[in-house]
Amino acid sequence: MAQTRLDRNEQINGWAFVMPALVLLGIFMIYPILWSLWMSFQVGRGNNFSFGGLANIQRLANDALLVQALTNTIIFFIIQVPIMIVLALLFAVALNDATLRFRGLFRTILFLPCVTSLIAYSSLFKSMFSNDGIINQALMSLHLVSAPIPWLTDPFWAKVVIISAITWRWTGYNMIFYLAALQNVDKSIYEAARIDGIPGWARFWNITVPMLKPVILFTTILSTIGTLQLFDEINNITQGGPGNGTMTLSMYIYNLTFRMMPSFGYSATVSWVIVAIVAVLSIIQFMIARDRRRGA
């Protein structure tokens, strides 16, 4: 009897301790998620909404702007993420070499972009890549181009600028994960490989990459999610332009919600599209990364 009372007391205590966090999580995370799911079935403008069934889903199918935003996002994702992952891996391997001089300096240079504010660096990129910005001036004075490159006014070049910017900002961030993983690798493994006569490229490709596979998977998923949520840079550098040429899904959702005719219901639907895409891409990445057998 006393025992059960003690048990119950402990249970009440336990719940009391976690309750504040649970309540906050409930109010600020779970409730909005459920609300947005409910909202995604509402139609109407601003606060005048009503249940519309599958109307928003039908609207998705005929939304040319959504297709454009989705295409842009996928282009960013397919081009930027692999470039960044490969760069980060190469930098990490280079920085992990004990014989490299000024390692601390290089590590700082590569990681520094990560601690700069998104607004600050994207404003800087905007001014650097403007028509009379430092990049065009440098290219002109080196006689590499005869006329300024329309960095921010041509859809293709605008994408190049965005990809360069996020690569600069996030490569060091991913590199740190690889560097941490590499520093946990037993150095004898590479010595054994040297004695085995494994050439340098094969040590990278057949030893380093497989050993880092779980970390590569992790950073790829993080970067995938990051790209699908790409907003700050776009909003600061191009505002989705020129002519929706760099419009991303997140930007589109923002515009749907706050810029164009506010349509909370439809923007919630588009948000859930992103959730679905992230889920599908993550599952695909897990399946690709899963070993043919039990290793890794």
Partner: peptide, 11 residues
């Protein structure tokens, strides 16, 4: 060479 930590390729 045989190493103290075995240095096998884990994957």
């Amino acid at each position: 060479m045989v190493f103290q930590t075995y240095a096998l390729y884990p994957h």
